[in-house]
Design a protein around this nucleic acid. Structure first.
Length: 509
RNA sequence: GGCGCGAUAGCAAAGCGGUUAUGCCGCGGCCUGCAAAGCCGUUUAGACCAGUUCGACUCUGGUUCGCGCCUCCA
């Protein structure tokens, strides 16, 4: 029986869907004006894991993750770049898709873009005005009147009184109450706008506020009421609080609000040096930067190794650690010809895995099961254990590559400490020397001008295989000096050899 | 200032009122020509102070420290 920590109730609750067998889930996605950072990666991976587990549990899941493609920052950035808003947002949507695919994230069923739902937003705002929850200010902005919504603050646990006491922004004089928030922004020069019936000095022309976007898109696709709404912890207030106020008021029937969401889920932050990773602090790492150095599956593993509600500290050391741990799992799979089969949930380890996942998606505990299975597979050479390991890991979107694809990977070694300056000819001789001493085939040069500070060489698998053969012959001849020399050279190039009765295998360090 | 979350071994990270978490690192052993991988064993825990209890890392209260939200933010 699945239990979910519901932010609304501040406790774990048994999950009961509105419609038996079906789950409707909405997650606040990205505002696309820049590359996604690791914080975004966490949202994508966490809710991907949630949707996978719901599906594994037999639910028919409709997963919606929106894209905010109109907002202050987008307009500003497009102007700075001298490109259209459409060009900018498409560019970063493409980048986001690339990143998420690498992280093994299955595309949500629907990825609505805000600009395609403006009509729905206008309708919703109109309904709010009509029902007395919103008003048109003298400047043409439309505001939500928080005083008129009784449950305001129920998600974030804040009272209007406390919020006003902590008010830190200068009060917009057009608002009736400092806590009122904008639903419709009256048009400004050089900004995109849509027609609306709200009137005011600009004849109603304007664009939607951020909060109304999610209310409109979620109800459009999932209805007035749906099962799960997710997002980062920082969206709890004001974004999700405002979504509730908007949706429940707009969908009220006979003056009674209609509960929008049954289960609110919030993932913890990614931190750097124990501080929240964010654009404003400037301490963020983009996904693509991290993927230059680390395998995407290592990043996914790193994210899922922590519980989704806990803070997750990012550092190279932690990524290195995750890489070693994942290497152990893939090593256990090596040599087993594993096929995808239906998981036998009666198996003790599978049952343990299920209990963990059903307990508010306890992926760290589920991972512990994977390591126990790895130990069993190593110990008993049992392909059954290896198969269960691979299939259970597959539920988390892990361990689906051939083990050698992970263990050997793309072999690029970086030769550091080389300060080379000179003509192309001189550089070529340096490279040739490197090839001679390291037995590497040079495939790429970093910094191909005459002043190089570094160089990357690529060892091909054929090179390694040849060296392994040479070494085996040396070993057979008991020439251990030669065989150890070869092994040492490869080790310096980042290739680790492993002898076994079946022969010698290799993997990257 | 208001509201909330957290503090577990060298690092990371879970469960659990009494019985091995797990991974990395360390140490000893097996295996190996030697390694690596693997296997076996093993050292390091529960911020602090009280209370409840036969028994607390686990429950309650307090203290200290850290973090987040209260403004855009995943």
């Amino acid at each position: 029986m699945l239990k979910i920590y519901n932010t609304l109730a501040r406790e774990k609750q048994i999950f009961t869907p509105i419609v038996a067998g079906k789950v409707s889930m909405y997650v606040c996605g990205m505002t696309v004006y820049d590359y996604c950072h690791l914080g975004h990666a966490r949202v994508m991976v966490v809710f991907d894991m949630v949707s996978r587990w719901l599906r594994t549990s037999g639910y028919d899941v409709t997963y919606v993750r929106n894209i905010t493609d109109i907002d202050d920052k987008i307009i500003k950035r497009a102007n700075e770049n001298g490109e259209t808003i459409g060009q900018l947002t498409q560019r970063f949507i493409d980048a986001m898709d690339e990143d998420s695919e690498k992280l093994g994230v299955i595309r949500p069923n629907l990825e609505p873009r805000a600009t395609e739902y403006v009509d729905g937003m206008i309708q919703m705002i109109a309904a709010l005005i009509e029902k007395g929850f919103a008003y048109v200010a003298s400047n043409g902005d439309v505001f939500y009147s928080v005083n008129n919504f009784e449950g305001y603050g129920k998600l974030s646990g804040k009272s209007l009184e406390d919020l006003r006491a902590g008010e830190r922004v200068e009060v917009d004089t057009h608002k009736r109450d400092p806590m009122d928030f904008v639903l419709w922004k009256s048009v400004k020069p050089n900004e995109p706008s849509w027609d609306s019936p709200f009137g005011g000095p600009n004849g109603g022309k304007g664009r939607p506020g951020w909060h109304i976007e999610c209310s409109a898109m979620s109800s459009h696709h999932l209805g007035e009421r749906f099962d799960i709404h997710g997002g980062g912890q920082d969206l709890q207030f004001p974004h999700h609080e405002n979504e509730i106020a908007q949706s429940e008021a707009a969908h009220s029937h006979d003056g009674k609000p209609c509960q929008m969401v049954n289960y609110w889920m919030h993932n913890g932050f990614v931190r750097v040096d124990d501080e929240k990773m964010s654009k404003s602090l400037g301490n963020f790492f983009t996904i693509r930067t991290v993927l230059e150095k680390y395998d995407a599956e290592v990043v996914r593993f790193f994210i899922l190794r922590a519980h989704y509600r806990s803070p997750l500290n990012y550092s190279d050391q932690h990524l290195d650690d995750a890489k070693l741990a994942l290497t152990r799992l893939y090593t256990a799979l090596r040599g087993h010809d594993v096929v995808d089969t239906v998981i036998d949930w009666q198996h003790p380890q599978a049952a343990r895995f299920k209990v963990a996942m059903d307990d508010d998606f306890n992926t760290p505990e589920a991972m512990a099961v994977l390591f126990d299975l790895a130990n069993e597979a190593n110990k008993t050479k049992s392909s059954e254990a290896a198969g269960l390991l691979k299939n259970l890991a597959g539920v988390l979107g892990l361990l689906q590559r051939k083990s050698d694809a992970f263990l050997q990977g793309e072999v690029i070694i970086e030769l550091t400490g080389i300060q080379a300056k000179g003509s192309t000819g001189q550089l070529t001789s340096i490279v040739e020397n490197l090839v001679k001493t390291t037995h590497c085939a040079v495939g790429a040069l970093v910094g191909q001008d005459s002043a190089m500070s570094g160089m990357a060489a690529r060892i091909t698998k054929e090179n390694i295989d040849e060296l392994i053969v040479t070494r085996s012959e040396a070993k057979k001849a008991k020439n251990f000096v030669e065989s150890d020399r070869i092994r040492k050279e490869l080790a310096e190039a980042g290739i680790i050899l492993e002898d076994s009765p079946q022969g010698t295998t290799w993997r990257r360090a």
